[in-house]
């Protein structure tokens, strides 16, 4: 067995966060390794972002010239009820999504890992992800239609009241979250599954020999060692959820009234539909700040920078 053993002794185990051999550093070699990524980062992310931040202090209609107006956009946002509404709605979406998606995906990953190892099952679960976001939204828009959707036919045929999935204020956001969960469940499960696979098998052996119950094994071994991947999954899901746009754009367009006017859609409306790009940029900067804070807290909280391998 050529299995790479991972029971590095604690002394060998260097937590990446610590700077043991300072001074020496690998700056040159590191530069070499990140150079290509750095080009992409600067050209296609950093520059546009800095430009966006600059525009958030201007009045700008995309087609005209930006005009510096200081923090006026931010002041207006603070008093904009639609912004606060969008923030609330988005948070609701994010929460439903995170809880559902992470829980389901973790469960599925464990099942894939322990019971259902077939590639076919994995492929089947990944199937929804093959469908583009917009198409998935359109498909469900149709399946869930109140008047002629097949789901409501089924609901009706078993004698339950039909549900206006997209049209009612209570359902609009949960429905969007469910569609997203449907599309991403298998994807997220696969990420976690990949993490499970990288947990050294001998740890399970030891646990077995010690007579640990499956639950104990899960809590004491699986969960801690899954931490980097779970941190990744959570952060990616949260960031992705905060940026929900496609599904809303092709289905409810923010309605009914303002019930599904999520942040990203509101930004889009302001920036492009209403040609208030400066205001849209300011909203985007706020969204960006929120995400950065959330991600920062998560990284700290989940110690996503570290592994518990010891």
């Amino acid at each position: 067995m050529t299995t790479l053993t991972r029971n590095a002794s604690p002394a060998e185990q260097v937590l990446p966060g610590t700077r043991r051999r300072r001074g020496r550093g690998d700056v040159k070699i590191a530069l070499f390794f990140i150079a290509p990524a750095m080009i992409g980062f600067v050209l296609f992310y950093l520059v546009p972002t800095l430009r966006g931040i600059y525009l958030s202090f201007t009045e700008y209609s995309i087609l005209g010239e930006p005009e510096w107006i200081g923090v006026a956009n931010y002041q207006a946002i603070a008093k904009d009820p639609l912004f606060w509404n969008a923030l609330g709605v988005t948070t609701q979406y994010v929460l439903i999504n995170i809880v559902l998606q992470t829980a389901l995906a973790l469960g599925l990953a464990l099942l894939m890992h322990r019971v259902a190892k077939s590639t076919i099952i994995r492929g089947a679960l990944l199937l929804p992800y093959l469908m583009a976001n917009v198409i998935a939204a359109l498909l469900w828009f149709w399946l869930l239609d109140y008047q002629i959707g097949i789901v409501n036919f089924l609901i009706d045929s078993i004698g339950l009241p039909k549900i206006a999935f997209f049209g009612s204020a209570e359902w609009a956001i949960p429905t969007q979250a469910l569609i997203n969960t449907w599309r991403h469940m298998g994807y997220t499960a696969l990420l976690i599954f990949a993490g499970l696979q990288s947990i050294p098998s001998h740890l399970y052996e030891v646990a077995n020999l010690d007579g640990a119950s499956p639950m104990q094994t899960f809590r004491k071994i699986t969960l801690p060692l899954l931490r980097p991947v779970l941190a990744l999954v959570l952060i990616v899901t949260i960031i992705g959820s905060f940026q929900v746009f496609d599904t809303v754009a092709v289905t409810t367009q923010g309605g009914p009234v303002n019930a599904s006017r999520v942040l990203q859609f509101y930004i889009y409306q302001k920036a492009f539909t209403e040609s208030d790009f400066g205001y849209g940029s300011a909203l985007a900067v706020i969204l960006f700040a929120i995400l950065a804070i959330v991600a920062f807290i998560q990284m700290k909280f989940l110690k996503g920078n570290e592994s518990d391998l010891d």
Binding site: Q147, F166, G167, G255, P256
Partner: peptide, 10 residues
Amino acid sequence: MPKLETTVGA
């Protein structure tokens, strides 16, 4: 006439 909420869809 159908309720507005039931017309969001098809």
